[in-house]
Write a protein that binds this DNA or RNA. Structure first.
Length: 422
RNA sequence: GGAGUGGUGGCCGAGCUAGGCUGAAGGCGCUCGCCUGCUAAGCGAGUAUACGGCUUAUACCGUAUCGAGGGUUCGAAUCCCUCCCACUCCGCCA
């Protein structure tokens, strides 16, 4: 969340950038709640100070055998007043906090201002689309022909948007995961496996709650949520902690299954692997010093790109505009991979810096060497990559006319040297 | 699932069955200073976080925090209630 003090000191900026997102927010109400909170607290603190003082005196008087009934009665009244102000104070503080939790992050100055995805700007392009001398098939047809995905049986045991990977399909998925993790490990990312089910506190920390509850699968009776991305469990590994500066940046890569309800995208991408309720992803997560976060974001983006480069899959990188970046993000690059069957680029990774927005919510702080004061860290994360979408991009870009799929060279060591899936 | 024990500062660990002098003994660790051929030992001082006030900034002052929330009380780490978590034993189980 944003720092209330920062908002007050930079109100124009906060209003402008929130409007740039297309978000509505009542800043005046927020500030009036803060004022109320402050004056109530000042009054309350004073009363409590008095009570603490007198209570000590009562102790002394009682010890020396004096009469305390009168002073005690007076303090009883003071206690009632404190309780009343306490209630009012808590209400104002809670309201203010609720508002703050629903206020999105401020974007960085170099983020293009725009309404929606149509105003995202091209950051770079890499690779050239292969020229097929036959009609490129969608991945579900390819997979069907090879018997490596079973959409019907996936639906049978669960519901729509759940799929079973069969035989070499399952192997290819696993090869991709291992290939990605190994590649990132070489670049200094420490591998972690964190819980898939997390509590509400963690979801609040990274910004999924309270605003996006309907996008999450929830295990009601245990009060736990299925993670929509490993970002949640990995980032929150450091919640409520004060890290040493020398341990920064923290760099993690993490494979996890991800679960999304996809509420509100009913008609979209109903066929194939693009939009599933459950999918695999390798996530990159960093905790950094504020001054390092922008360069670390670029390094993270590069790490994600390297996967596509090694697989020789054409892609482009888009800078998301102010209206399209996520709730908690201050700046986001999307990597989009080329899909020949659609003749279009589709998102395969999203790399963001959250500045200190998540760090404040999750209370992830650090102490500089020799300093007493603690500061909020910055958090960064990105997919490196969405495995299911990489899987389908490989099928589509490496398909042959006879329905077989050539295995990208980088993956062959992970598939026992296999060259063609047939 | 059954039975039990416990959650205190960076860590260990007192206090909790006589509620006030305990933000919290003691030890360890860490920081600074002294001492010292070097290291070790020794000596001295310091060592939580949040919010608010004051301040140019330090400093300082106030409030809160002993798993979380609520209650009793003039006053609670200490008493009562609810919840959460960890550990041990038994049962069950990948």
């Amino acid at each position: 969340m944003l720092d209330i003090k920062y908002i007050i000191a930079n109100l124009d900026e906060a209003k402008r950038k929130t409007a740039n997102r297309g978000a509505e927010f009542d800043f005046d109400l927020l500030i009036s709640l803060d004022d109320k909170r402050k004056s109530l607290q000042a009054e309350n603190d004073q009363l409590k100070a008095e009570r603490n003082k007198v209570s000590k005196e009562i102790g002394a008087i009682k010890k020396s055998g004096g009469d305390i009934s009168e002073i005690q009665a007076k303090m009883r009244e003071a206690g009632d007043r404190i309780a009343a102000i306490d209630a009012e104070l808590n209400e104002a503080a809670e309201k203010m906090n609720d508002m703050l939790l629903n206020l999105p992050n401020l974007h960085l100055e170099d983020v293009p201002v725009g309404k929606d995805e149509n105003e995202n700007t091209l950051y770079k392009e890499w690779g050239t689309a292969k020229d097929f001398n036959f009609e490129a098939k969608p991945h579900w047809d390819i997979a069907d022909g090879l018997g490596i995905l079973d959409f019907e049986r996936g639906v049978k045991v669960s519901k729509s948007r759940f799929t079973a990977y069969m035989g070499l399909g399952a192997k290819l998925e696993r090869a991709l995961i291992n290939f990605m993790l190994d590649t990132h490990a070489e670049r200094g990312y420490k591998e972690v496996i964190a819980p898939y089910l997390v509590n509400a506190e963690a979801m609040k920390g990274t910004g999924q709650l309270p605003k996006f509850e309907e996008d999450l699968f929830k295990c009601e009776r245990d009060e736990l949520y299925l993670i929509p991305t490993a970002e949640v469990s990995v980032t929150n590994l450091y919640a409520q902690e004060i890290l040493d500066e020398e341990n920064l940046p923290v760099k993690h890569c993490s494979y996890s299954a991800c679960f999304r309800r996809e509420a509100g995208s009913h008609g979209k991408d109903v066929r194939g692997l693009i939009r599933q309720h459950q999918f695999n992803k390798v996530e990159l997560v960093k905790v950094t010093r504020p001054e390092d976060s922008e360069t670390e974001l670029m390094e993270l983006l590069e790490s994600a790109e390297i996967i596509l480069q090694k697989l020789n899959l054409p892609y482009r990188v888009m800078t998301l505009c102010s209206g399209d970046i996520g709730f908690s993000s201050a700046k986001t690059f999307d990597i989009e991979v080329w899909l020949p069957s659609q003749g279009a680029y589709r998102e395969i990774s999203s790399c963001s810096t959250f500045t200190d927005y998540q760090a404040r919510r999750a209370s992830i702080r650090f102490r500089r060497k020799g300093e007493k004061k603690v500061e909020f860290a910055h958090t960064i994360n990105g997919s490196g990559l969405a495995v299911g979408r990489t899987f389908l991009a490989v099928l589509e870009n490496y398909q042959n006319e006879d329905g077989t799929v050539t295995v990208p060279e980088a993956l062959r060591p992970y598939l026992g040297g296999l060259e063609v899936i047939s």
